[in-house]
């Protein structure tokens, strides 16, 4: 390197600095490419291994017993939707109301505690949720059930929905609330009719993100929803779900089940990605970001 001159940077030094800057920019580009690579690799293999197994039977038939070719995951696909509906009916009201409290009512001090606890809850490994709900709902009722699975997923949704709801509500301009107050509207009406309505797209986005996240969960269902080889007729009975079937097929010794596990994974991924695309579409023209 050249001897540094504090007062008059030489041309050579300048060139070196330019070079370093360019090199670092190149490095960052490479890093960004590396960060983006895994998703493409995952999708590529999902499609390569799974797409050929997707046919009409896969979406309409029940799983065949092992050793027999064919069959499908119809009950698991329906089961996943049933479980997600139940999860949402727990996670959404509690999460949204909690978010409203954080954004509209809570003191700074209380809020930081609640936020902190929500983040901790997010970090609780999913299998732990399965253990807890098993002890709370499965053992006392002496049966595995769709309820238990829905509750496990619903509880996992609460902190996610709460945080995103709070984040979008605080973006609603203060003037909206003040205008409402000036008109003498009750505060709960201001919140529900003005604030929540303004931020509705954002809230829905948060709900979809939370749904997408729990849609792929396997561990909390293992000891709650259990799985079902047939159609479930009651919510108090065990129910099948896509992640459960993918898991149990993936660790089985049968090639035909491996094939179906990839196909199931592809369907699950497609479902989750379409939720994400929906989120994109919704938040594209969101007002307050």
């Amino acid at each position: 390197m050249t001897t540094p001159n504090q007062f008059q940077p030489s041309a050579r030094q300048h060139a070196w600095r330019k070079f370093v800057s360019g090199a670092m920019a190149g490095l960052m580009l490479v890093c960004a490419a590396v960060v983006m690579a895994p998703i493409f690799l995952v999708l590529y293999f999902l499609i390569r291994e799974g797409a050929t197994s997707l046919d009409w039977a896969f979406f309409t038939q029940l799983p065949k017993p092992s050793g027999e070719l064919g069959g499908g995951m119809a009950n698991a696909i329906v089961g996943t939707f049933v479980l997600l509906t139940m999860a949402a009916s727990i996670g959404v009201p509690v999460g949204v109301m909690g978010g409203i409290y954080l954004a509209e009512y809570g003191s700074e001090r209380a809020n930081s505690w609640i936020r902190f606890m929500a983040d901790v809850l997010n970090g609780v490994p999913s299998i732990v949720w399965g253990m807890v709900v098993w002890a709370l709902l499965v053992v006392p009722f002496k049966t595995f059930s769709a309820y238990a699975g829905g509750v496990a997923l619903g509880l996992m949704m609460i902190p996610l929905v709460m945080r995103t709801t709070e984040e979008v509500l605080i973006l609603v301009p203060q003037g909206y609330r003040e205008a409402g107050l000036a008109l003498g509207i009750a505060r709960w009406k201001i919140i529900t009719v003005i604030v929540v309505k303004t931020a509705l797209k954002g809230i829905i986005t948060g709900i979809l993100i939370a749904t997408a996240r729990v849609a792929g969960e396997t561990a909390p269902l293992l000891f709650t929803a259990l799985g079902n080889n047939f159609w479930s007729h009651r919510l108090s009975e065990p129910i099948s779900a896509l992640p459960l079937l993918i898991y149990s097929y993936a660790v089985s010794p049968y090639d035909d089940w491996h094939r179906q596990a990839w196909a199931g994974a592809l369907v699950l991924m497609a479902f989750i990605l379409s939720l994400n695309i929906l989120v994109r579409l919704l938040s594209r023209d969101r007002k307050f970001t």
């Binding site: 139940m86 009916s89 727990i90 049966t143 595995f144 309820y147 259990l226 079902n228 047939f230 479930s232 007729h233 009651r234 919510l235 108090s236 009975e237 065990p238």
Partner: peptide
Amino acid sequence: GLFASVASAQMLIN
């Protein structure tokens, strides 16, 4: 409260 069970004739043994 949230989900009233729907009765069905078929029995499920787990």
